[in-house]
C-alpha cells in the first residue's frame, strides 16, 4: 500500500489531513445538532471540537482493521474547510469499510460531498482493495439518501425505531456498494487520471 499521496485532489477540492489550526474552521459546523449523528464523538462545546480535531488529526492511514482515515475537505482557492470525509476499515477478513462524513450546512448542496466521496470510494476499492463499502444515514435526511443513490449505492436497510437518538425514535438507512459495482459506475464522476490514487 504505497504510492498514496496526500492531499488528494478532486476538481474543486483538496482532501488533506487535519491540522491543529483547523479547530476554528471545524468549529463552524462541528457543534451543529444536525452534524452530530455519525461523528466519532459528540461535540457540544468548543473544547469537544478541539478534542475531535485531535482525533481526526491522528487518522492518517489505514494499517489495521479498526483504523480510520479522515480527510478535511478543503476548497481550492479560498482554502475553506467545508467538512470532512472518513473511511473506517471495519473488517479485514470480509474486506468491509464504512464511509462517514460531515459538511458545513453553508456549503451543502454544491456537489462537494459527491466529489469527496467519489474520491474516497476510489481510494477504498482502488487503493485499499476493500470489498464492500457502506454508509449509514438518518432516515429523515433525504439529501444524504439522494447523494448515496447518485453515487450508485444500493439501499440495503431501512430500520425503523430500532434505537433511540437524543431521546427520539431513530430511523436509519444503510447504503452499500461492492467493488465490482463501483467498477461499473465509476463513470458517475470521473476524476482526471493524474488525480487517481492507485
Amino acid at each position: 500500500m504505497t504510492g498514496l499521496q496526500f492531499p488528494l485532489a478532486t476538481d474543486r477540492l483538496e482532501l488533506r489531513h487535519f491540522e491543529r489550526a483547523d479547530v476554528a474552521l471545524v468549529g463552524r459546523y462541528h457543534m451543529l445538532p444536525a452534524v452530530q449523528r455519525y461523528l466519532v464523538r459528540p461535540t457540544r462545546y468548543q473544547e469537544d471540537v478541539a478534542a475531535a480535531v485531535e482525533i481526526m488529526r491522528g487518522q492518517v492511514c489505514l494499517q489495521r482493521p479498526g483504523d480510520t482515515l479522515t480527510l478535511a475537505m478543503q476548497r481550492k482557492g479560498d482554502k475553506a474547510v467545508l467538512g470532512h470525509v472518513s473511511l473506517h476499515w471495519s473488517d479485514a477478513t470480509a474486506g468491509q469499510g464504512e464511509l462517514l462524513f460531515a459538511i458545513d450546512p453553508a456549503y451543502a448542496g454544491g456537489g462537494f460531498l459527491t466529489e469527496a466521496l467519489t474520491a474516497m470510494l476510489d481510494l477504498a476499492f482502488g487503493h485499499y482493495g476493500i470489498h464492500r463499502v457502506f454508509v449509514r444515514c438518518d432516515g429523515r435526511n433525504h439529501h444524504s439518501a439522494k447523494l448515496m443513490q447518485k453515487l450508485g449505492m444500493r439501499l440495503e436497510a431501512h430500520y425503523r425505531e430500532h434505537a433511540l437518538f437524543q431521546g427520539e425514535w431513530d430511523e436509519e438507512l444503510h447504503f452499500a456498494i461492492l467493488d465490482r459495482e463501483w467498477q461499473a459506475t465509476s463513470k458517475v464522476h470521473p476524476l482526471p487520471l493524474r488525480d487517481r490514487v492507485a
Binding site: D91, T93, A94, Q96, H131, R132, F134, R154, E156, A157, H158, Y159, R160, H174, A176, L178
Partner: peptide, 9 residues
C-alpha cells in the same frame, strides 16, 4: 427491513 449482500463471511 434489510437485505445485506457480502457484508461478512
Amino acid at each position: 427491513e434489510a437485505h445485506f449482500r457480502e457484508h461478512a463471511l
